[in-house]
Design a protein around this nucleic acid. Structure first.
Lengths: 249, 249
DNA sequence: AACAGGTCAAATGTCAAACATTTAATGTCT
DNA sequence: AGACATTAAATGTTTGACATTTGACCTGTT
């Protein structure tokens, strides 16, 4: 590996991590390539081993590298998989939503807008197994003794299958993050108010439309589902403010 | 802070980081709250200070905490801002695209699909300053002696303004990641083949449509822009394979 | 000659103790 | 009362050591 140069400002581990990250992004370090040992890196950068370790750990936290112990061990450039990227996106989005008091309306709007963006592709390219997966989840959702948690999980799986049907991994990755991150917020309203029959009916209509390759119909139903979810949220909000008023007045 | 419990498997810093992250996600640690000192954490978890530090650095790499030196220093729970989240998303997406040889077609399709999802909201809610920003970028793009780099940067800024006009920060955050991450890929084709006049004309049409609140028109033009970009990519690809064939044959 | 086993070395993981640096609070002098 | 020096607390960094893991190599047996 050629020599890396450090930036000017900031703390040492940050600068070292940035130098290595740049090397990866710019292709000077390629997937599965082994980095020099911590000792060698320490000498190259003129710092101590713990400092190098902190830098490597920062990169490991972002899944940019993986470390392996033992004789042939070391730090290796990670080939970032869609799954790794998606799980990071989910973590980030979940935190973003929970820490910024994003109102349900905004998150919900974003989620369905993104999902509707997938529908034309899903209708055009759906494979049999995507439709099978969607219908399987619908059957699960129709089971009368399903717990709320399981229903919600199945809901996520249904939408995941819909998005995957679009056959665009970049879209899937972005959507998976949005859908999963919204799950806690969704649960807050859906546990209390939602009609499973209504949801199942809408899901069935979506699956039918996708199966038939009818993007327009699928989009219409999805819009209806978005409106229904939004209305539910409104109900919950009204109920809450009424209860709050009752408690203070 | 109440006591945190470690998970069962994995390395110590990973488990410690996970314990703290869970506490943040679940709201047991709230924004701007100060964590115990590294020394105290080390005692609580029964590990050494460097181990705690590694855990904290993992969290800092994800912008979950920030550290501050000095007398009243320490580690503080970070309120994850949209900007922080967006920059992480950009890093992740950029790497994902560069390391997985995502073909231009897939990335381009995803990008414009997401952007078109914003258009109805942008048309409905655009404020004057968004339109002003879009038109300012268009004027920049029309300057004859603009470098390719500046043109591309202005291109990103234009689309950013379009997305922001939708008035949904969650959408903005997701889109910003997609658009910026695609920039290197876009540059590869646009430096060589694109007609600035055509782009400027399309951008102008989009700005006009958004300004007029005409979502359908804006969507149509955006679809046209997507098709044009896609066609350019096709040209570049054909030229490349022809050149490659010429070299080998 | 092939295989099983043990030994070894290299690398990361962890710990301990110290020193450096930064920062704000505190106390003191004018 | 305000300016300035002191101090304490915290993170940043270094050094050195030991623990653990794991593949490579050597060796002995079949």
């Amino acid at each position: 590996m050629e020599k890396l140069t450090l930036g000017e400002e900031g703390e040492l581990p940050v600068r070292i991590a940035a130098a290595i990250r740049d090397a990866i992004v710019e292709g000077r370090l390629i997937s599965d390539q082994r980095l020099p040992s911590e000792q060698e890196l320490a000498e190259q950068f003129g710092v101590s081993r713990p400092t190098v370790r902190e830098a490597l750990k920062r990169l490991a936290a972002q899944s940019l590298i993986r470390t392996q112990r033992g004789a042939t061990g070391g730090a290796f450039v990670n080939r970032l998989s869609y799954d790794d990227a998606a799980s990071q996106l989910i973590t980030t989005s979940t935190l973003l939503l929970s820490m910024n008091a994003v109102d349900f309306e905004t998150a919900c709007e974003a989620r369905y807008a993104l999902e509707r963006a997938c529908v034309p592709f899903a209708a055009a390219r759906r494979k049999a197994d995507h439709v099978v997966a969607m219908r399987a989840e619908i059957r699960r959702q129709a089971l009368p003794d399903l717990t709320d948690e399981s229903f919600c999980a199945s809901d996520v799986a249904f939408h995941r299958a819909l998005v995957d049907a679009a056959g665009n991994p970049v879209l899937s990755y972005q959507l998976a993050g949005a859908v999963e991150a919204m799950q806690p917020l969704m649960n807050m309203i859906t546990f209390t108010a939602r009609s499973r029959e209504r949801i199942v009916a809408l899901h069935t209509a979506i699956a039918d439309a996708i199966d038939a390759g009818d993007a327009t119909a699928a989009d219409t139903v999805l819009a209806e589902l978005a409106a229904y979810t939004s209305a539910l949220a409104e109900d919950v909000r009204r109920a809450r403010s009424a209860r709050a008023a009752g408690m203070t007045g």
